[in-house]
């Protein structure tokens, strides 16, 4: 225990001095950076210009950010999805409780942490939850035409799942979102993403004519692989959000 001792004071002082030094060094670096907002800024180089000018023709996606993360740099996004999946697995390993806990105890915990028969909550969420789901699906499906995409749409759908869980309880949520379905959805989405993008990169690198064509820009079915990949991303993000919340809800997980 160092609380209130001289070592504690010294540590606090050193921390403050170190932080101020760090801020000073970084501010010095910022003062050497080029002017922000300049169109001739070195960060706005030919890579970004290529994505903006040729992105719509080459990928079919009008949203240049979606074109970048799901076409030009799609394997980076696959890595992100794997990071999400691995983090959900790590949380599961860390929070899994031993088989010692009884079923009734879990049921009692459910009663303590979830509102049961809360009329206002369930009636309000009856109207709110479908709207949230619809909005999330819309953002996911039009990710290549408007701002949004799989990550934001998946986060909204995940939030809708959390609302549903909090309003109606675990038992009702388990009817359409249980462990087996989580595993199937997640592994299916990751597998489809890997296979589709692997095919696309293999075909592109070897100059073979791909069966997936890009035409008719601006329509919802125009962008070739981008819309299915957006759906995959949304599935992984929403199920991960839901699974992580489910595990943290009671500080343990033993279903």
């Amino acid at each position: 225990m160092y609380k209130g001792t001289r070592i504690q004071t010294l540590y606090n002082l050193l921390s403050i001095v170190f932080t101020i030094l760090l801020i000073g060094i970084l501010l010095y670096t910022v003062s050497e950076l080029p002017v922000m907002g300049d169109a001739l800024h070195p960060a706005n180089n030919e890579v970004a210009a290529h994505y903006l000018v040729h992105g719509a023709r080459e990928t079919g996606a009008l949203n240049a950010v979606t074109a970048m993360i799901l076409d030009y740099r799609a394997f980076d996004t696959l890595g992100e999805l794997c990071v999400l999946f691995v983090s959900a697995c790590s949380v599961y390993i860390l929070l899994r409780v031993d088989a010692g806990r009884k079923e009734e105890e879990v049921e009692a915990l459910d009663r303590r942490y979830e509102p049961w028969n809360d009329a206002i909550l369930s009636k309000a969420f009856l109207f709110l939850v479908p709207a949230v789901f619809l909005f999330g699906i819309y953002i996911t499906l039009t990710g290549h035409l408007s701002p949004g995409g799989g990550f934001s749409g998946g986060a909204i759908i995940g939030a809708g799942l959390l609302l549903y869980l909090n309003a109606f309880g675990l038992e009702k949520t388990e009817r359409f979102m249980n462990r087996i379905r989580y595993r199937r959805l997640n592994c299916g989405a990751l597998g489809f993403y890997f296979l589709a993008k692997g095919y696309s990169f293999f075909v592109g690198a070897n100059d073979i004519k791909s069966v997936i064509s890009v035409s008719d820009q601006g329509n919802i079915l125009s962008a070739g692989l981008i819309m299915p990949l957006n759906v995959c991303v949304a599935i992984v993000v929403s199920t991960t959000v839901y699974a992580v919340y489910l595990m943290f809800r009671k500080g343990g997980f033993n279903i």
């Binding site: 970004a48 240049a64 035409l145």
Partner: peptide
């Protein structure tokens, strides 16, 4: 950076990277 088809000037859009 929501680019309509046929747009050519990249300076009109923020950097997507």
């Amino acid at each position: 950076p929501i680019v309509p088809p046929g747009a050519v000037d990249p300076d009109l859009y923020v950097n997507p990277v």
